[in-house]
Simulated assay, not measured.
Amino acid sequence: MRLPTSSPRMPFRSGRRTNDNAGEFETFLEGWIVRQEHYLEELLSAQHNCHESRDDDLNDLISRVLSHYQHWFTSLERTFLWITGFKPGLTFRLVTNSVDDLSEDQTRRMNRLFEETKAEERILSNELATVQESIAASPMMHLARLTGRPVNGEVRDEEAVMKSLRSAMESVVARADNLRMKTTRKVVEILSPVQNVKFLTAATQLQLSFRSWGLQRDSKGASNE
């Protein structure tokens, strides 16, 4: 089965495009969620009939679902996402909860991949913490908090510092996205087609549930204002 490759990263958008980008993102997200709901229906049907389906048909569905998830990590979405998108380690919990027939070899490979992934997670978390500390420790950030405005004569230096920090943050975010997709691809390679259908069904259901809970929470918060 051919797995989707990472999509190219587009350049950072200027602040003047923020509102337009937000509108584009909302439109994209609505369509993405609708397509994901359709894929969930396909996955549930495939899971129900998986023992009657050909591996080629299941692999085609798996590849399309993974491609759909890959679309989430385009440059437009990265403008709004943070490294705190789901941790790759969650992938292994989903496998544990949805796939109950792993062989000994699959279990060993999953455990090895889990340890590798956790190590990369720690590296990225430490790098994120370093960038955040640098931003918080920026002298101009401190002065801006005290005065509520930039300090004359130091704006250019501050812009250079923030540009450097922004670049570092974008690098961490991009690598976090890549780690999520790399982990998912490797898990898919370990599992059989039937097991992958179970795993992706659980992942899709969880993501849609998170969105539903988030909308309910936002609606409740807005009604209390």
Rank of each mutant, 00 (worst) to 15 (best):
M1D: 01
M1P: 09
M1Y: 01
T5I: 14
P11T: 03
P11G: 07
R13G: 06
S14G: 15
G15N: 13
G15Q: 13
N19F: 13
N21E: 06
A22G: 02
A22M: 12
E30H: 13
W32K: 11
V34H: 13
R35K: 15
E37S: 10
H38I: 03
Y39P: 06
L40M: 04
S45R: 14
H48Y: 04
N49W: 07
C50V: 08
C50W: 05
D57L: 06
D60N: 06
R64C: 03
L66P: 01
S67F: 05
S67P: 00
Q70I: 01
H71I: 06
S75F: 04
R78E: 11
G85F: 10
F92A: 02
V95L: 07
S103T: 15
S103C: 05
E104R: 00
T107I: 03
R108L: 04
R108K: 11
K118N: 12
E121I: 15
T130V: 04
T130I: 10
V131C: 07
Q132T: 12
Q132Y: 10
S138H: 12
P139C: 06
R145G: 15
G148N: 05
P150Q: 10
D157Q: 08
E159G: 05
A160Y: 03
A160W: 08
A160P: 01
K163T: 14
S171F: 08
V172L: 02
V173D: 09
V173Q: 13
A174R: 13
A174Q: 10
A174M: 02
R175P: 05
E189I: 00
I190K: 02
S192P: 00
P193N: 01
V194M: 09
A202S: 11
Q205F: 01
Q205P: 05
L208R: 01
F210R: 01
W213H: 08
G214C: 00
Q216E: 13
K220N: 12
G221D: 14
S223H: 05
N224W: 07
